[in-house]
Amino acid sequence: MFDELRDLYQEVILDHGKSPRNFRTLENATCLAHGNNPICGDMLVVYLTLDDDRRLADVAFQGQGCAISVASASMMTEILKGKTRDEAKRLYKGFHDMCTKDGFDVSELGDFDEDAIDRLKMLSGVREFPIRVKCATLAWHTMQAAVDGEENISTE
């Protein structure tokens, strides 16, 4: 019984779920968005500070959610720091595809930190748990909304 569950809840995911990185508010955020998943009550706020050349100088989040949604948000903040808006959007799309389509590899997305990409790949286990895909993608939808200047998104 544990084997399939381990594919979903890998150690790294449990670790990020329990001790999320960049779990704080950004006082001087240039954009933020609220994301919620009405099915399970998960609620996140994603904060971004964009610098002059449209890079994400800082990325953070706050809120509550299941291990998958918190881990995904935590990993997202790590990998996006220092990236441009366009890179962030490209990764958003790539991550979404990885969570929903078999055989999609985020490594092909270009110049991202390899370890961080490896960690992200661990979340692809949600493909086998379709009801949990929204947990994994909530933070990403929210980040995308923040970048686009929308304030509230819902994954239903």
């Binding site: 291990a67 998958i68 949990r132 947990c135």
Partner: peptide, 21 residues
């Protein structure tokens, strides 16, 4: 442990419970 994670876990033991609001 978030209710959603509990639900997924016990599901693999064959147990159907509702999680959420």
């Amino acid at each position: 442990i978030h209710a959603h994670d509990l639900g997924t876990f016990v599901d693999r033991a064959g147990v159907a419970v509702r999680v959420g609001h």
